[in-house]
Design a protein around this nucleic acid. Structure first.
Length: 424
RNA sequence: GGAAAGGUGGCCGAGUGGUCUAAGGCGGCGGUCUUGAAAACCGCUGUAGGGCUCCGCCCUACCGUGAGUUCGAAUCUCACCCUUUCCGCCA
């Protein structure tokens, strides 16, 4: 949520930001007009309330019945006017809130300006220590079925397209990855959280997925629960409406959750394999920091996510997203993409973002530097560490042997319980 | 799912229609006293919005949430949410 004071003070800054993102800046003028209306109504309304409060106190003390009745009649009219103004104000504030809530975050100055994803900037490319394959690597859906560790058909039987079943060592590999990633995060200073996978509407709003992106979410109508599309949602809600102790910051969290996404926007795209399912697992990193420290922790989280791929020996590259590709709540985002020789593409396994105070405003998360100091909004950051299915793809393809077996990465062996996967 | 009790400031807790400008206590901050500390005493204490002559002052709103009654609501009415306990069900 953008600060109305900023919009009021520097509308051109916001206008430019919206244009850079490819958003229509028209709501801005509407917002400015409503803001003026709103304040004039409040001024008049507060005046009337002050009058009514004062006179009502006098009425309580009045002895003269005629005078008393006259004042009561007068205040009844004042009350009627207040009711009218209240109704008008509620309408305007609802419109204003809806319009402001639909505006995305302002991009950081370092975010490249560009009209589409081709303007994302590759910051660096890191070659893993794993030797490049000398044979024709099969895509994971082929090798997965061949080994019997991925069952696409039965996934479809159970739940339809974009679902699959992991069998035996396949399931075990993913579970091992999750446990290993969580242990790595702890080593890096993150405290593990186990969270609800279903949350209330206001929690989803706080993270920025509602109201704009409801089409991509699963919703239980009976209980009004939303299935989390990422752990970022409950992690943002965790400290909503709290004023944190500045000395306790930063708060660094890691959480494993499944993620549920309808993927309506991309029907027909990436339907094959593990790449884009309706349900996938992820280990997430999250940080709540003081404003002046958030950029430092953005770099830390990026480094920590990269460390995951480094330890697996995989080749990856880091991209700085341009304005067109930037998520709604983010002001700056790094994507990490791992190379996978079977599908022959760079797979996005992590996205690390600084949202500044955007989510903090929506979720109302504040801190106090010291006792008695004014409460300020925190900054929040999120980063995948990492998305499991695509990490699985990278392992099944990068660690594939000519005979069709999969070598288990050394760091994972204690977690998976085998050195080599030859079948389910 | 059923029944009962409850929800008031950072915390505890009083308050059942009119200086509530929410008592009192605890905690915290500042001060007096002290060689220092403790004790005692004095003062201060939240969030949001708006206005101004803007280091400050003034106004408005906020007692779980939302509607309603009233000149006036923490207090009365209705609905909802949440918490606790008991019963039922259950891994």
């Amino acid at each position: 949520m953008l600060d109305i004071n900023l919009i009021r003070k520097d509308p051109d800054l916001v206008r430019t930001a919206l244009l850079n993102r490819g958003y229509d800046p028209a709501p801005l003028d509407e917002i400015l007009a409503l803001d003026v209306q709103r304040r004039s109504i409040i001024a008049r309304n507060d005046e009337l309330r002050a009058l009514r409060n004062e006179v009502s106190k006098q009425i309580g003390r009045m002895k003269d019945v005629a005078e008393r009745e006259a004042k009561i009649a007068e205040m009844r009219r004042v009350g009627d006017e207040i009711d009218l103004l209240d109704a008008e104000l509620r309408k305007i504030e609802a419109q204003l809130h809806e319009l402001i809530a639909s505006l995305p975050n302002l991009p950081d100055p370092r975010t490249p300006i560009g009209p589409d994803e081709s303007h994302n900037v590759v910051v660096r490319e890191e070659r893993g220590w794993l030797p490049a394959p000398t044979f024709d690597v099969k895509p994971h859906w082929e090798i997965g079925e061949q080994l019997g560790i991925i069952d696409f058909e039965r996934g479809v039987k159970l739940s339809g397209t974009r679902f699959y079943v992991l069998n035996g060592w396949g399931a075990r590999l993913q579970r091992g990855l999750i446990a290993w990633m969580l242990d790595l995060r702890r080593e890096q200073g993150y405290v593990e959280r186990y969270l609800p996978f279903m949350v209330r509407s206001d929690v989803v709003f706080g993270a920025g997925q509602l109201p704009k992106f409801r089409d991509n979410l699963y919703h239980d109508a009976e209980e009004d629960f939303w299935f989390v599309p990422t752990a970022e949602v409950p992690l943002t809600g965790l400290h909503s409406a709290e004023i944190l102790d500045g000395n306790a910051l930063p708060l660094l969290y890691a959480a494993y959750t499944p993620c549920f996404r309808r993927e309506k926007m991309s029907a027909g795209k990436d339907v094959r394999g593990l790449k884009r399912g309706h349900q996938f697992d992820k280990v997430e990193m999250y940080a709540i920091t003081k404003p002046e420290e958030s950029d430092h922790y953005l770099e830390k989280m990026l480094h920590d996510a990269e460390e995951t791929l480094r330890r697996l020996g995989l080749t990856y590259r880091v991209k700085l997203l341009c304005t067109a590709d930037l998520g709604f709540a983010a002001r700056i985002t790094y994507d990490i993409e791992v190379w996978s020789p079977g599908v022959r593409e760079w797979l996005e396994v992590s996205s690390v973002s600084n949202t500044g105070d955007f989510q903090a405003r929506r979720a109302n998360i504040k801190f106090r530097r010291e006792r008695g100091a004014k409460a300020e909004f925190v900054h929040t950051l999120n980063g995948s560490g990492l998305a499991l299915p695509r990490t699985m793809i990278a392992i099944l393809e990068n660690y594939q042997q000519p005979d069709g077996s999969i070598v288990v990465p050394e760091v994972l062996r204690p977690y998976v319980g085998t050195d080599l996967i030859r079948g389910a």
